[in-house]
Design a protein around this nucleic acid. Sequence first.
DNA 1: ATGCTGACTATGT
DNA 2: TACATAGCCAGCA
Length: 133
Amino acid sequence: VKRPPARRRRDSRSAPPDARTAPTAYDLMLAVVRRIPRGRVATYGQVAALAGYPHAPRLAGYALHALPPHTPVPWHRVVAAQGRLTLGRLSPEGATTQKLRLELEGVRFDARGRVDLERCRWQAGLGGDGPEL
DNA sequence: ATGCTGACTATGT
DNA sequence: TACATAGCCAGCA
């Protein structure tokens, strides 16, 4: 399999792709993130894999890092493996916001402050759209 | 083109 | 449990 050749370099915050410019890697990542239903979470690795980069979980983080402040992308639904919120290193404030938003959506955290992945992990394409309560 | 970086992850001490 | 390392790969200078 070969990659689409003519992808012109584009800034993530610029206009959406058109017929001439294929989406960049992080556009693909963000497209995946937008599909995560309310009350569900996905890991960086999961997002990357669904976007076609099974060995580049860091790209998922990189894509989210490039998001503008008022993005409609539900970035808070992406967590690290083991359900940890790793945004803290870069932005403690952001980490707080993330946890708050997730709690508002009904996502459970365990005693160690980690997302209950067993329960809230998004299973792409399985039809289930929220945590089964 | 080359080299560095990073909202990651798995593995080893 | 807590660090340290090695892979990973698209952007960017």
